[in-house]
């Protein structure tokens, strides 16, 4: 075996190792959220960046979405039931917060993986 062979083997091992570290040890949280209003996807935000954004439906209903530390939650809304505001912060692929009065759904998606949850019972 020549020196070139060892270099080749070394670089393959290196690439495999880096890939493995990246794929297997990065936590499987969702990577982004989608925001749907009345069934239409209106926004898509990465969970990795802290953001605050307000959404309004055509009837003046507003929800304030806050993304912080990789989790998304609704901090303010002018809906009557406030279920969306009381909902825990979401970060796992497939989780969602629904504001029924404003027909707003925030869903955590994982852009890399499609093996999250396809539907929710309950």
């Amino acid at each position: 075996m020549k020196k070139a062979d060892w270099i080749l083997i070394g670089s393959i091992l290196f690439v495999a190792g880096v890939l493995a570290a990246f794929l297997y040890f990065v936590p499987k949280n969702g990577s982004a959220v989608t925001v749907e209003i009345n069934g239409k996807t209106v926004d898509r935000l990465p969970l990795s960046e802290d953001t605050t954004k307000a959404y309004a439906d055509e009837n003046g209903g507003t929800n304030l979405l806050v993304i912080e530390n990789g989790k998304a939650r609704i901090t303010e809304a002018n809906c009557p039931d406030k279920i969306c505001v009381h909902h825990r912060a979401i970060s796992r692929s497939g989780e969602s917060i629904i504001c029924l009065p404003h027909k707003l759904v925030v869903t955590v998606i994982n852009e890399k993986e499609t093996d999250g949850v396809d539907a929710r019972a309950g």
Partner: peptide, 17 residues
């Protein structure tokens, strides 16, 4: 039609090696 299969890639790289 899934990118999920790349999860096998590091293992298959090692195995191929």
């Amino acid at each position: 039609r899934t990118a999920r299969i790349v999860y096998y890639l590091p293992v298959l790289l090692g195995a191929g090696l």
